[in-house]
Computed example of a mutant assay.
Amino acid sequence: MKAFMDKDFLLETETAKKLFHDYAEKTPILDYHCHINPKEIAEDRQFDNITQVWLGGDHYKWRFMRSCGVDEKYITGDASDYEKFCKWAECLGKAIGNPLFHWSHLELQRYFGYTGVLNKNTADEVWNLCNEKLQQPSMSVRNLIKQSNVTLICTTDDPIDSLEWHKKLAADDTFDVKVLPAWRPDKAMNIEKPDYLDYLEKLAAAAGMTEINSFASLKEALKNRMAFFASMGCNVSDHALEYVMYYPASDDELEEIFLKRLNKMVLTKEEELKFKTAFMLFVGKEYHKLDWAMQLHYGCKRDNNTLMFEKLGPDTGYDC
């Protein structure tokens, strides 16, 4: 009988096995888009338990748990880490065929040496095994990265970020994995968001400007921050792009739209898209000058549950 998710999982032909085991498996990973916190890498965090590793910020798992009817208490609420893990284990049996099922079991095999199946009956066994192993020095954040054969990590960073942890990592010669920032300017583009004007104040401060009072001054602030990011080794950008239409507008019209938003007036959908089109054209030209790559998350619908967005904020499992 074939072993559960063995070393040839998904490799159905001899050619596939040869290509993976003789070539791909040993190839170093250049991770140019991830959400690892650079602070955790700089401080080489040691996790207390498997819930912190798996469920601390993984909104894909959160979304699936909600689909299974799990109460929010056990997802982002005040339940204990043990209780949250047990709820995840209970849900996982319903995830067969979903990549979450594969990811979870491959991680249990490769990092914890567990070859069984995680479900509500094995939850205690897996909880104890993982937590005991996580106390070993080999399971710190940096060592997990090294075990994964990762040689480059690009984190996800807002234009206003100080990049202080990237500075510390760049100066630390005890860790030879390159950790670079990636430019994620969604908050500067999302002119329709309620907190947009508050964000402009923070962006102006980060760029050393007294204020951002026009589209032209917004572009200057962004160029200032791009130069700083470039000085820290950044060479990739990253955008969540909800729309796919092209809405051209003149410079005068764009300034009128921006002024309207500064005056706290509601923009039409067309005005919003004209601004976003101009924004993307501007940054695209700047990236070309800097020789940056542009990554696009295309056609995402963000924060589509108003009630839960108001309770939990963005990136909590309500995108689609």
Rank of each mutant, 00 (worst) to 15 (best):
M226C: 14
A205P: 08
L163W: 08
E220R: 11
F215I: 13
I212S: 01
V177D: 03
K269V: 12
Y246W: 15
L273T: 10
A188N: 07
L262M: 13
A171L: 08
K202W: 04
E272K: 11
Y246Q: 13
L169C: 05
W165D: 01
K285W: 12
Y196S: 12
E220K: 12
I212W: 07
A204E: 01
L180A: 08
E211H: 12
A170H: 03
L281V: 14
K274V: 07
V283W: 06
K167D: 01
F282K: 01
K223N: 15
F282E: 00
L273K: 14
F229M: 04
E271S: 00
W292R: 00
G284R: 00
A249N: 10
Y287Q: 04
G233V: 03
R184M: 09
E164V: 06
T174P: 03
R261V: 09
P185N: 11
M280S: 12
P194Y: 05
G233M: 01
P181T: 07
M209H: 12
D238H: 03
E272A: 13
S217Q: 13
F282N: 01
D176M: 10
G208A: 05
L180T: 10
E270C: 11
L203C: 03
D291Q: 15
D172A: 03
C234M: 01
V177R: 05
F215A: 10
K269P: 13
L197Y: 09
H288G: 10
D172K: 01
E164Y: 08
L200A: 05
K219G: 06
P185H: 05
K274Q: 14
F275R: 04
M265N: 14
H239S: 00
K187E: 15
L169K: 00
S237W: 02
A240S: 14
E286V: 09
N263V: 11
K219I: 11
Y246L: 14
L259M: 15
L262V: 11
A204Y: 05
N190C: 13
L222T: 06
R184K: 07
A278S: 15
E256Y: 10
N190G: 13
A227S: 15
Y247W: 12
A207D: 10
K168C: 01
K168S: 02
L197G: 09
K276R: 15
A182R: 04
K264Y: 11
R225F: 02
E211W: 10
L290S: 01
F228Q: 09
H288F: 11
L281G: 13
W183C: 02
P185I: 06
F275T: 08
I212L: 09
L290N: 03
L169Y: 00
N235K: 13
N190D: 14
A171I: 02
S231M: 09
L163S: 04
F279M: 06
M280Y: 12
F275K: 03
K289E: 15
P194W: 06
D238G: 03
D173K: 11
L169W: 00
A230G: 04
N235W: 14
E242T: 06
M226F: 08
L267F: 08
W292P: 02
